[in-house]
Design a binder for these strands. Structure first.
Lengths: 207, 207
DNA sequence: GTGGTTATCACATGATTATGGGATTTATTA
DNA sequence: TAATAAATCCCATAATCATGTGATAACCAC
């Protein structure tokens, strides 16, 4: 029984190249190849891939958000993340979201195919520099997270927002003025690197 | 070793009454009693209750949202929900959020105390009418949910919002006008019984 | 005792959301 | 075929949010 592989990558030529490699690799089967995650659930439900090659930087819905949904709803499909980024925050976001492996796009195709096999066999392939980052993260506390940078008050405000409260309601609940709420939210945005309540809540709720 | 019990109930006299019952019940210990969930995490981390009596209708952050957070971060604490409501949606929201038991507030105190013991021993006490509803839910599909009422297009819009997109970005991503986005969102609000993006994505992400 | 952090409040402006109307097209179904 | 559901678009207004700038007080650490 071949290993079924689905690809989510918005760059068409890279997607085609990867598709070709998968199709010409022994024991591999291409179950799907898409440019976005808009219909992720339906596609996965039909394709039933063993391994998903996921670009981290898809337009609209990031590969990280998609990975989270996929990991929750289809835990039997493993995600192998492909990225050009080597920065901490994204890597850990992806790992937290449930990615099994994490490769840089500059990885040679043969290595990517080997990594797919490795994921299928229960491994967790990573590019060398990323493996180092992951190892280092254990030297300190548990997985570092932007949310841990919030002060207690900021965390309270954010959780009230996540419960569906407006600024006005948060102010009433927390017993502070709406301007103070604004100030807290500005700091929250800076710390979480977001620009709207929606994004902040998404980070909070999908931690 | 006594069973530690924390109470979250905004009605002060009910809270006091429950506290008194807990304190005067053999082998029970009151680990905390609060009127809101604003500092839930800190309180639970200190109190370490075996069982949490949670009012479903707390001001600011509902007991359901609190239960979700609690269940995720402190899986060793079980939640016993107290409510005056007997409607489907809330009951299943609470169950989905991780509540272990579900009692109506009109339940006699002695029965509530017995239910706490039952939860501690691995049971799932429910008021009779609620148990019936839960049983009935198995006769059909998996747990019914407001989110399942959304059309495919509405679901796409909601997931794009949950990924942190503004109306304008959603429109661009989905290839439709911003007014169409508005219309979809209006329908989403009706179906989910909410009035803001925040509430909608809270329902979506915490499903 | 100076500097950093946290929490608080104020004001102002432009952008975005929330909400209410109303309308058309395309399928599907009774 | 008439009714219904889904998806699309338009307009208008009030409310809310995003962002900048500035300021005060408490507390802690060095």
């Amino acid at each position: 029984m071949p290993i079924r592989i689905s690809i989510y990558e918005d760059n068409e030529s890279l997607r085609d190249a990867l598709s070709l490699f998968v199709q010409t690799t022994d024991n591999f089967e291409l179950s799907g190849a898409y440019g976005d995650c808009l219909n992720l659930e339906q596609q996965i439900a039909i394709d039933r891939p063993h391994v998903v090659l996921m670009d981290i930087d898809l337009p609209g819905m990031s590969g990280i958000a998609a990975t989270l949904r996929l990991h929750r709803q289809f835990p039997e499909s493993d995600v192998l993340m492909l990225t050009v980024f080597e920065d901490n925050e994204r890597i850990f976001d992806a790992i937290r979201a449930g990615a099994t492996g994490y490769l840089l796009k500059k990885t040679p195709p043969a290595r990517i195919m080997a990594a797919i096999q490795e994921v299928y066999e229960g491994g967790a392939p990573m590019s060398p520099g990323i493996a180092r980052l992951v190892m280092q993260s254990f030297h300190r506390s548990p997985l570092p997270h932007e949310l841990d940078q919030l002060t207690p008050r900021e965390a309270t405000v954010l959780s009230l927002l996540a419960a569906g409260n407006s600024y006005k309601m948060v102010a009433a609940e927390a017993g502070i003025s709406i301007d103070t709420v604004r100030t807290h939210i500005k700091r929250i945005y800076e710390k979480l690197h977001v620009h709207s309540v929606t994004e902040a809540i998404a980070k909070y709720l999908t931690r």
